[in-house]
Amino acid sequence: MRSIWKHEAHDFTLWLLENADVLGDALGMDLELTEAERRVGGFALDLIGTDLATNTVVIVENQLEQTDHSHLGQLLTYAGGTDPSTIVWCAPSFREEHRAALDWLNEHTDEETRFFGVEIAAVRIDESRPAPLFRVVAKPNDWTKQLHTERAAVSLSPKSLAYQGFWSELLTRIRSEHPAWTKSTAASTQSWITLPYGTSNIWYGMAFTIAGPRVELYFGASDAAVNLAEFERFLEYRELLDVEFGESIKYDALPGKKACRIHVDRLHGDVLDVDSRADYIDWFISTMAKFRPITQQIRATLESAS
């Protein structure tokens, strides 16, 4: 590894910051890494970012030698200081004791917290440039996590269970028909799910509102002024959406609130209407199939103009 990346912080960490998709593919995650060497107390976390499908925090600790106790301690220290949902440890090889430690953590934490061990390697064919090769060697035990989820489900309302079943079926369709939309397999028990847009402050939503099903682009940064500015930049190209959706598309700056949204609604529809489930799923997929390409086109235009 050190023949390719001489220095962990200066070379490998910065390379991974620019190539988060490689790690994301290995983890099955829509991953965006946003910062290297984040200060956590008196220490520096290698990388922090976001799972764009769930808008949750991901942290990554790297080393270019076999795993050691020091880095395991650092990993837990950084987790305590950043409250992540996904904790990733990357190294060329894992001691069996450290792999077992990650397995233990996965077995004894709830379904919202996930620990991964990823072995890093590189391959070269003839005189080609080295290509990274990541292999997941420790990951959440789906069966154990499922047991935790089932225990928690005992206290869920019938509507929460209906949402969970609906989103699970919808995500299965999406993974089959539109795998580029998301890598997420997590079925929410809420009235909404999110899909990545390409930046951590903006995301797509599919939701059941009081009025009925909705597909939206949600501007959700922590700063209201940032959201309004991004929303207004987007509106400069609204004619593309207007032509496709006409009066059915709405632009809501949501005065007095932090977020903004652009959305397409379907009148009437309730997740408890089981007989109409297939119809609702078809509507969500067909609407997003029109909505996403146009909004991605606008995103590309805005980024090229920046």
Rank of each mutant, 00 (worst) to 15 (best):
residue 3 S to P: 08
residue 3 S to T: 09
residue 9 A to Q: 14
residue 13 T to G: 11
residue 18 E to I: 00
residue 19 N to T: 11
residue 22 V to G: 10
residue 23 L to D: 13
residue 24 G to S: 12
residue 34 T to A: 08
residue 36 A to N: 15
residue 37 E to D: 10
residue 37 E to F: 02
residue 38 R to P: 05
residue 40 V to Q: 04
residue 40 V to W: 01
residue 42 G to T: 08
residue 46 D to E: 09
residue 51 D to T: 04
residue 51 D to C: 03
residue 51 D to E: 04
residue 60 V to F: 13
residue 61 E to N: 12
residue 61 E to W: 02
residue 63 Q to R: 08
residue 63 Q to S: 02
residue 65 E to M: 15
residue 71 H to S: 07
residue 72 L to V: 14
residue 73 G to F: 01
residue 73 G to Y: 01
residue 74 Q to F: 01
residue 79 A to F: 00
residue 81 G to Q: 13
residue 89 W to F: 15
residue 91 A to V: 05
residue 98 H to I: 06
residue 99 R to Q: 14
residue 108 H to E: 05
residue 109 T to N: 10
residue 109 T to S: 15
residue 111 E to D: 15
residue 115 F to P: 00
residue 115 F to T: 00
residue 119 E to T: 11
residue 124 R to W: 00
residue 125 I to L: 07
residue 126 D to N: 03
residue 127 E to Y: 09
residue 140 P to F: 09
residue 142 D to F: 10
residue 143 W to L: 11
residue 145 K to S: 04
residue 148 H to T: 01
residue 150 E to W: 11
residue 152 A to V: 08
residue 153 A to S: 10
residue 158 P to T: 05
residue 165 G to F: 14
residue 172 T to W: 05
residue 184 S to T: 13
residue 185 T to P: 08
residue 190 Q to N: 11
residue 191 S to N: 04
residue 198 G to H: 05
residue 209 T to P: 03
residue 211 A to S: 15
residue 211 A to I: 02
residue 213 P to K: 13
residue 214 R to C: 12
residue 222 S to G: 05
residue 222 S to I: 05
residue 223 D to R: 08
residue 224 A to E: 13
residue 226 V to Q: 10
residue 226 V to K: 04
residue 249 I to L: 11
residue 250 K to P: 03
residue 260 C to F: 10
residue 266 R to S: 14
residue 269 G to I: 12
residue 270 D to P: 03
residue 271 V to Q: 11
residue 272 L to H: 06
residue 273 D to H: 07
residue 279 D to F: 14
residue 281 I to K: 02
residue 291 F to C: 01
residue 292 R to S: 07
residue 292 R to G: 03
residue 294 I to L: 04
residue 294 I to K: 00
residue 295 T to P: 07
residue 300 A to E: 15
residue 302 L to A: 02
